[in-house]
Nucleic acid binder design. Sequence first.
DNA 1: CAGTGAGCGAGCTTCCGCTTGACTT
Length: 703
Amino acid sequence: MPLIIVESPTKARTFNRILKIANKDDYYVFATMGHIRDLPGNEMAIDFKNKFKPSYQIIAKKKKVVTELKKLGKENKEIILATDPDREGESIAYHAAFLLGLIKENWPESSVKDGKNLKRIVFHEITARALSEALEKPETLRLNLVNAQQARRILDRVVGYELSPLLWKKMGKNWLSAGRVQSVALRIIVEREKEIRKFKVENYFQIFGKFVNAKQKARLPHATPEVEKMVKAKLTSKNGEPYEQKFTLKLFAGEYQYAKTTITSVQVKSLEKELLADTYEVVDLKENIVSRFPPPPHTTSLLAQDAFYRYGYSSKMTMRLAQDLYERGLITYHRTDSFNLSTQFVFKAKDYIEKEFGKKYSLEKPRGYKTRSKLAQEAHEAIRPTKLDAKAAEKSEDKRITINHKRLYSLIFNRAVATQMKEASIKNFTFSIAGKKGYVFESELQQVVFDGFLRLLNPKFVENNSVPLNLKSGDQLELDELESLESQTKPPPRYNEASLIKILEEKGIGRPSTYAPIISLIQVKNYVEKDFRYFAPTKLGEAISDYLAGSFADILNLDFTAKMEENLDNVAEDKLNFINLLEEFNTPFQKELKESKQDKSVIDVEEEIKEKCPRCGSPLTVRFSRFGKFLACSSYPKCKFTKPFLRFIAGKACPKDGGKILVRFTKSRKKFYGCENYPKCDYSAWKWSEIKNLQSPSNPSSP
DNA sequence: CAGTGAGCGAGCTTCCGCTTGACTT
């Protein structure tokens, strides 16, 4: 009886179901639960003198899995490797085959011992047809792909296990970490912070006019009933001279565009006077109908971004919820970078759309999406519901399905179905309002002509933009009111979880399975902190990033991974030898390491604060430990005074005893707010909204 | 599924990527 090997128990279950239906129950399907053989954690385990030979071990937590695998291997002669079609999947297959005694390892060349009994099947879609087709023409293990994975693994190990100890010495903290992915993620945040500091904030004014058309009702963009008669437009030029200037900043990651006007506070008053005295006419009214297409279905990265902006979920939370939905069979696999939707789903979606919204909303031909990124590996489908049932999560009787699960399910459902809906048709109006003295105001608005997919994905937008513009060129308008707004130019924004994941994915840094863990890691290590929902580097994080960027500029660059991936593709296609690739990386790297090790200077990130040590009077300093920040006496080791670093919320007092409110954490690192006088006072709150309206300490409430 | 408060830190750490079940109530 053939033994089929896959990664995940869910995939195994699906296979069993399909095989049973096809009356092929003489297969046994076994799940490895991911990698089973890897480098040990407690040492480098790379032999640099022997072509980077790795010493793999069975992963401690997988011993049971491997015992079971070996037992099954003895019982079943024919082995069918059915792991994911990408690099990591091929590697899992390889190590499983090795443990079953079917691979001869002779570094750096490995070979398959018994090709008759070892087969590899590959498919991108788990359906009965794909499976039976694959079973009919099995292939062989792709050793070049395995080598690409090994090169990736070894390179990451070398980078991580060389750079980390360097940091331990450099910073005097033996728990620090560095790596190809995490250090670049950190640098992205650090460089942005510097760009923000460097940014010069400037004040400027914007002038908006509200115009009335006595004869006809004109509509204001985003109109409310009360102001329906008014048209709001922005002053943009005089005699062809624009007031607005646009600027583009080149940033570490991408660029930043911003605009300001040349209008200063001095000019505003006289401008207002002149504008109010003028008479106006609508000119250059243009209509332009454009199609708006639905966004692609969710990948891991897009789902994390969508859930963050829509519901404020952290990536960790989103992945946890998605995992639960996946395990209950409600959605497809949630760690994916693919836009592919199975043909079965696409056809069912068409039926669903026609039944739910009518034929006007469905497509004749299915719509597909191209991956933007060449770095995608597309081992899975896009994330989509498994059933065309909008209420599938709602109906679940599982008590562990919460409102959050249901919300995330809806997000996934709507987005996937929307991909197969007609595009929306939007009429864009742009027009100017010109005064006799040469002043020009400009405005634009949109009207939804046909809602298409927006009906499902953004009904509010449809509702707010359904009325046509009731103006035409030549209409005479009166300026009813002026609104002068003082603004400041804004620096590029800090990253949040969504924008960080977006840039990581764009640059191919990290994989769907690692985005959330990486974001957790740089916070747990105290390299970055969240200021509300935005990342700011700590002193420690900035020092680490600057040091590494200075000494290992190539690795800390955004295109390092992209170049590595290109090379790994060449290895997979047998155009490049993977040992040569490793050597080409490692030779200059070791040189840089040697130079860095010669510099014995130590970087100090400790920062003195105003507060004095109660024991000896020396200033206290903020220090970093693996458990977070703490305050310690600056005359350590002479004085060993320490105390916790507390984060007070300014301007809030405890409603029970008037004490200061501070941020605390539960044992499981969940954030909450509490009174400084704990345990005497037990006031606590989970959410900002609960403490938002608390009184300030100096201003106790009277009633 | 939720889950609400120590005191530690300054000797044996650290990588990336693939999986799920893992605490306790």
